[in-house]
Design a protein around this nucleic acid. Structure first.
Lengths: 282, 282
DNA sequence: GGGCAGCGATACCTGGCGGGTATCGATCCC
DNA sequence: GGGATCGATACCCGCCAGGTATCGCTGCCC
């Protein structure tokens, strides 16, 4: 199988429409139809169920969709990492660290300082990203190493080293009745009718159904809380970033949040190894 | 990048010889030279250092070699898993479990029994393999799930669940002086001049340098021990498979051996999930 | 219910590129 | 210094990816 065929199939499987998929790929529809047919013939499997009005994935098709995405990420990673290696050999070497926008900057700062003290430290480029984006970046080679927050992110498929475990707090508008408490339980928070948890756009950009207001980023979220329209459950370390019109109360039975440093399996990069060493040495 | 280019590059990088690589690929040498040149031009990186007598990998080249192998495995896995999914939809569904030849059969038997009791259990095909082979099988889709033994195998890049941890024993010919002991230390074993540890062929088929006799498989190894030409350090559970002319003594300070069940990250196979459930329910 | 619009499949053509043979040029070795 | 070895170059050919035109089917709507 050639990556071209995989790219073609992914486009059709995602669009479920040959015309749009062809447009997205920058080719005409007939060659696309033919390519998919060839792919099906060679695999000896029907991937798509097409009536002349609608296209759906078969069981084998959805397996291939998932596997093809992973394979294409691996190919892209190969290309990017090779380019970066060539660049590092001639020009300035560097390593890309992916971290969540709005996550604790204190931990990152410490890590960067510790790494900078290493004898063979190279430039660290920070890549701030949205929720769940880091795994993709690590997989397709745009990042070399990432800070993940379990259980929000998934470290599945990466090598990891645990850096910190912390409890969570509920962030409330200053002056809210719960603010006086030294601790609360999850049930008390989720059942606040006046302060629902806000909704985040998923990986596809759509908001889940629900009562909460919508927030697109961190700043909007904090604004919503300050305005008394929402509350939020977040790792303890976010307290450092709260302004005066917000308050935080520990949530006793919220799941622990573990910060880990993650890197692609079998990474032989000296820079990644150095960062991990610096991070774990604390 | 197309997988064809990656395959070509891997062949040249492994052979370090355009002629042999071309032969291995079943094409002539000139098109191979040209393909590698094109790849280098498109990546904007020099991958191979060639004099007219010798070919060596550049820094970028060895990065690409590693990444390309992973990417090609992913592509192969996509192809195989799709084929299997199509087969499962029409014919008999099944799941492939990779396990070490010569490993504890008791644990495997228990696992298979427990899984067979699951409501939607499918056929489990066993794939017995040599040391370190399982990771490859899991990565390129020939296996769906595997039993690994840490720290001998590496579970890096897979999702795992721990099944058992055990100590190790030294296997000796019956009647050897140490046989009378209830336990020994590593130092006592490694410094037996008359009973060296045997050498295993590495992944490339070559034997490492050293004093020990060579063994190609399990049976040869046990034979060597029975003949008083070697001793061996192995997980406790191997005792069940020892014949009468062999004896085992616990090694106090040998590293613990952990048996884990491992599967490719984000596997959505119901069968794999069922096997893992059966394994962890113990 | 018939006409129309939308969509995938088919037919057919063209150009580029992957692959082959012949040969060159450099380097090492006897 | 001459031959052997090996990668690069030159040149040619055939196949296949991609384009255009068109068909056939199926909802949908007046």
């Amino acid at each position: 199988m050639e990556t071209r065929e995989l790219r073609y199939f992914v486009a059709v499987a995602e669009e479920l429409h040959f015309g749009r998929a062809a447009q997205r790929l920058g080719i005409a529809q007939p060659p696309l139809s033919r390519a998919i047919h060839q792919l099906e013939r060679r695999l000896g499997a029907s991937l798509l169920e097409r009536t002349s009005r609608t296209v759906t994935l078969t069981e084998a098709g959805s397996v291939l969709l998932q596997e093809a995405r992973a394979a294409l990420d691996a190919v892209e990673a190969a290309e990017r990492r090779t380019r970066r290696a060539a660049l590092a050999a001639t020009g300035r070497p560097g390593v890309v660290l992916a971290t969540k926008a709005g996550a604790s900057s204190e931990l990152v700062a410490k890590l960067l300082d510790a790494y900078a003290a290493e004898p063979d430290a190279v430039t660290v480029d920070l890549l701030l990203c949205g929720i769940g984006e880091q795994e993709r970046l690590l997989r397709d080679g745009r990042a070399d190493v990432a800070l993940l927050h379990l259980p929000f992110d998934s470290a599945s498929g990466f090598d990891t080293e645990e850096l910190r475990a912390e409890g969570q707090v509920v962030v409330l508008p200053a002056g809210h009745p719960l603010t006086g408490r030294t601790q609360v339980r999850m049930a008390e928070v989720t059942e606040l009718p006046d302060l629902p948890l806000p909704r985040w756009p998923g990986p596809d950009g759509a908001y889940p159904e629900g009562p909460g207001p919508r927030a697109r980023d961190h700043a909007q979220l904090l604004q919503l809380i300050a305005l008394g329209r929402a509350c939020w459950i977040a790792p303890e370390s976010c307290r450092a970033q709260l302004s005066e019109d917000l308050a935080a109360v520990p949530v006793l039975d919220a799941p622990m949040v573990t910060t880990v440093i993650a890197w692609p399996p079998q990474s032989r990069s000296r820079a990644v190894a150095g960062l991990v060493r610096a991070a774990t040495r604390h």
